[in-house]
Design a protein around this nucleic acid. Structure first.
Lengths: 237, 237
DNA sequence: CGATGCGTTGATAACTTTCAAATTTAGTGG
DNA sequence: CCACTAAATTTGAAAGTTATCAACGCATCG
């Protein structure tokens, strides 16, 4: 009755109990978490696991016993709606924490978009730590607050036109995964479409439209160069 | 470039420093908060203030020094976007807590939809209480979690068709403000439209469509009778 | 080299907005 | 209490946006 046609194949859907790597591989291939006590603690407490591209990290409605942090690669969370459409909850890049829930079960499924390494920490251990260290508790609370803001920002995107949604998405990604004016998108057009509530065709057409308008360049489908941010901001209004 | 034409007049926009009533009027005209320690504490700690219809309770970007709970009447939070459209953040009914922020400033403005009484508590007092009573802290955290779920549910609505959005909205309100199958809407069509990212005309047409389909009845514009919930759920898919 | 997946482009249909007007409801003053 | 005015809601017709269906290009991979 609306966008998104149906379920897209997801290579290996019922995964592989993922291999546990030598724990606490706290070397230098990571981003962020430097001055963030929570991220730091997770590194120290957690085991690092590897997930090949398109494998499930956890499933909707599974018990939410663990919290996760991306070390490398990237992750999407999503729901399959009753009519088969897929709604993406969010994209998580290195340093980002995901899977933190407020009920016993996960409200989304999570998959690796590209081969990913993820720190996994028991939720109970985190709570215990928060009990001993008030800074950690505050950090958990703040994390939730940031997540809330992020979702609210998404709501603001979703009430706008396709052009505004795509422009807003690019600006959001630029803040998170940008080197200079070059944005490397880890996700496919379909992922973007399911995130923005559009079809893949509309996303594609909108990107070419922005390119024609000289706001961006699209040298390869996963790489976007921002040529005119103020134009994007204007579209994003 | 999309929905919502422009700013609608809001009767008295720069309000009246609202009158402080005899504090802790913890009588029986309230809803909920019975077994909720946080709601209970707010009643005990807070002052009750009255806000006439359409008056501002707080403004976007103002310091978020207080947390609020609806006693009677109802409240909307909203943002005015740069292009003049209004986006509604949420509707708050008796018992609901609003205005809790994760930064120093409010991210939305708040207004009384109908004449409202609201318990006002200093944020600092609440934090202090949470420091002494872990149950309160957990309650604050859980409240944020519920708010997050609510906004995520909103995202799921916004990626759907107009019919699904309106049906979903009615079901949401039915869970919150329903006597039997009769839903009393405290808000105008414009409020609903700004909440769902639609125009007032589309909301109106969709409601008449649902009425023709025998899913609902609309005896008066603010009163909706649910005749066929499963049909609404189906539309909501 | 042919299969396959992903992205782009084109044409058409469906849906939603926009603009305009009619109708109903609510509020006010006499 | 009624008449009158303003506001809110509904309805209609046309225009604009996005989805759908289909085809094509392009790269990867066996």
């Amino acid at each position: 009755m609306l966008p998104q046609p149906a379920i897209r194949a997801s290579a290996f859907h019922h995964p592989i109990p993922p291999r546990i790597l030598p724990p606490a591989s706290t070397h230098a291939d990571d981003v962020s978490g430097g001055r963030n006590p929570l991220a730091l603690s997770m590194k120290l407490m957690g085991a690092v696991m590897s997930f090949p591209r398109n494998t499930e990290i956890f499933g909707e409605n599974e018990p939410a016993d663990y919290v996760y942090q991306v070390v490398s690669g990237s992750v999407r969370t999503y729901k399959i709606l009753t009519d088969g459409r897929r709604q993406i909850g969010g994209f998580y890049l290195p340093g980002d924490i995901f899977g933190l829930e407020y009920t016993d079960a996960h409200s989304f499924s999570a998959e690796a978009i590209a081969d990913a390494k993820v720190v996994v920490v028991k939720r109970g251990a985190l709570d215990a730590l928060a009990g001993r260290d008030a800074a950690i508790g505050r950090e958990l609370f703040a994390l939730t607050g940031r997540e809330l803001r992020r979702v609210q920002g998404r709501v603001l995107l979703l009430v706008k036109s396709a052009q505004e949604r795509v422009a807003g998405f690019l600006l959001e990604m630029a803040e998170r995964a940008c080197a200079g004016n070059v944005v490397e998108l880890p996700m496919s057009r379909q992922d973007i479409a399911d995130y923005l509530g559009l079809t893949i065709e509309t996303v594609s057409r909108t990107l070419t439209g922005l390119e024609s308008a000289a706001a961006i360049e699209v040298p390869t489908s996963r790489r976007i160069v921002l040529r005119n941010r103020s134009a994007l901001h204007r579209l994003n209004s």
